[in-house]
Design a protein around this nucleic acid. Structure first.
Lengths: 347, 347
DNA sequence: CTGAAAGCGCTTACAG
DNA sequence: CTGAAAGCGCTTACAG
């Protein structure tokens, strides 16, 4: 029913070989023959079958993308970045998630074996790095979008977590904030350490050692941000700033601080990490370290596309910079002895 | 390099036909032959090539999914729902977006023509309904995830926008809120009218005609929620509640109300629509009408899978219910004459 | 510049 | 119960 290359060939009075040639622009061919064929293609609205082309060429023009979950706050950005470049190259993006755990991986593994796609973009579902490494070792082109600073032994795109921590610290130091509370991310993630180390290092350079009691282990949830602040309050630890390792926990921290009657940003300035849409809607809007998630998705996809075009995959990670976005949750510290007594504002 | 059905056949000492039969469980075959073949398949780790199977069978076992954008707040939920059922059936999900406009549609159209997938799940990018309808008319199995209450002439999954509006109204009426401000969604969307009509109808039944000046046309943005409140304030319109047509604008409304020194939920109760994650993090947490986005994704995918299995696609939309989620942004109205004077709380 | 033929890796009548 | 052969719709040496 659907029209095929044979139909075009017949109608144009040439062989399928010739049609194939004009389709792919390969080999020399008479200009008028080519023109005639093109016209027939146009008339018939012929589009080659992806299945048949795939089988004949041994390539699918599809890239796979494996992600842990689709409901994370920044996942849409990464995906959009990847899809944009993949689509614009005429490739398709086949999506896989780890949502159903081991079963998902089974399905995924079998899709790999059936060669459903030519290359893979992946945000590592926890605990699957070895598996991904194997795929790469067996010859599947893979590029990791390294959201957790894993620095794997295969091509990847990452961001500057360490520098991000530094920029948060520099900003708070400039504002005169000398006792920051840090609400970290999940302990086992590389990004958590990088962000903390960068932050701590910058404070150290300014002659301030971080009070170890003011480093609270969070888990990237809104709730953990609240808990971090609550903990510091319970322990009667003095702090004039919060550096939370993501925006969600920064949002929780802001709320917990304000509920004690303290003002954000004046009494306590808060800096987050990620720059998800939520960061614009906290009260006050959140100063945060922007992670270039969309660009990371794009970069990873471009690497893969480049590879298909003949450029080898880079050995070292491509690192895209974070940038500090200053909003209203941070402000200069005013010495409390010289500051006017806080006005009571009813809300 | 990759092993094929011929390798298995050779090693098992049978024909490719026989291997194919054990693979697909078709036709009678000697139990021991089958067992031997299975063993060889196991040994070799053979998995049939998706491309070849696709070409031979004329089906890809891939479903396409077209969405306007991947960065909308609830898009991840829908996608996750769809992916979950598609994956569990051994199908793949090929993702397309409208992000680059006309060019995206070009690419997409050509993927349709090349028969890259067997069926389509779609959240309509604005202005493409006619195109989608054509695809359906030409025989492509399509199911629409109808987020805007378009009620198209082909299979779809929708939700109860009207009933959602009713439930918001009922809740506010029970709380004694008689003068609600409505901040609508985009005017040209069906869902906006449904939500408004359901809301208005319920108030009318309670003998309260909505003040037309208290219906403000928003556009689903946080900012439009603020504007709606600002407008009512500027016009000196009295209101004791807000019904916003999505959570983002509800969040903006909450902030605008609080900035005037009024209390949410006591002075003004606020109800949203959607129940995105943000709704849990507003201050106070938002009472809202939950839309079953994930279930809609699942239902749509199941419809399509069912169709592949022989069940015809339903003629009428499958409608999944919304549910009111009560949080802290709504509370009973206390008559101001009997209520204690507001305490000034510093925040 | 052009075409006949083989091949990509499967499935599916058709025969036996 | 099993296999040889044709076919799915292309691409790609190879020949001319």
């Amino acid at each position: 029913m659907s029209i095929t290359i044979a139909d075009v060939a017949a109608r144009a009075g040439v062989s399928k070989t010739t049609v194939s040639r004009v389709l792919n622009g390969k080999g020399e061919l008479d200009l008028r023959t080519a023109e005639r064929v093109r016209q027939v293609i146009e008339e018939l609205g012929y589009v080659p079958s992806a299945r048949a082309v795939g089988l004949a060429r041994g390539r699918t023009r599809i890239v796979g993308m494996l992600v842990p979950s689709l409901t994370w706050p920044w996942m849409g950005e990464v995906l959009q970045g990847a899809v944009d470049v993949v689509e614009s190259e005429g490739y398709g993006l086949l999506l896989f998630t780890f949502n159903r755990g081991a079963e998902s991986m089974q399905q995924f593994a079998s899709q790999v074996s059936s060669q459903s796609f030519d290359g893979l973009l992946v945000i590592e579902p926890e605990g699957t790095l070895t598996f991904i490494e194997q795929l790469h070792a067996r010859g599947l082109p893979v590029v990791l979008i390294d959201d957790r600073d894993k620095r794997p032994q295969f091509p990847s795109v990452a961001t500057t977590n360490y520098a991000g921590g530094e920029s948060a610290a520099r900003h708070l130091l400039e504002l005169g904030r000398r006792r920051p509370l840090v609400i970290t991310g999940v302990e086992r993630f590389g990004c958590t350490h990088e962000r903390l180390d960068g932050f701590r290092g910058t404070y150290a350079q300014a002659g301030i050692e971080l009070d170890q009691r003011l480093v609270f282990e969070g888990d990237f949830t809104h709730e953990s941000g609240r808990r971090g602040v609550q903990y510091a309050l319970d322990e009667r630890l003095d702090f004039d700033a919060v550096f939370a390792h993501n925006d969600l926990s920064a949002g929780g921290a802001i709320q917990a601080v304000r509920e004690t009657g303290r003002n954000v940003p004046n009494d306590v300035s808060v800096v987050g990490f990620d720059d998800i849409p939520y960061a614009e809607h906290t009260e006050p809007p959140l100063t945060t370290v922007h992670q270039p998630m969309r660009q990371m998705g794009q970069a990873a996809a471009r690497m893969l596309m480049g590879y298909f075009g003949g450029t080898p995959l880079p050995e070292t990670p491509q690192v895209l910079p974070t940038t500090l976005i200053v909003r209203s949750s941070t402000a200069p510290k005013v010495d409390s002895r010289t500051r006017p007594a806080p006005k009571h504002r009813s809300r």
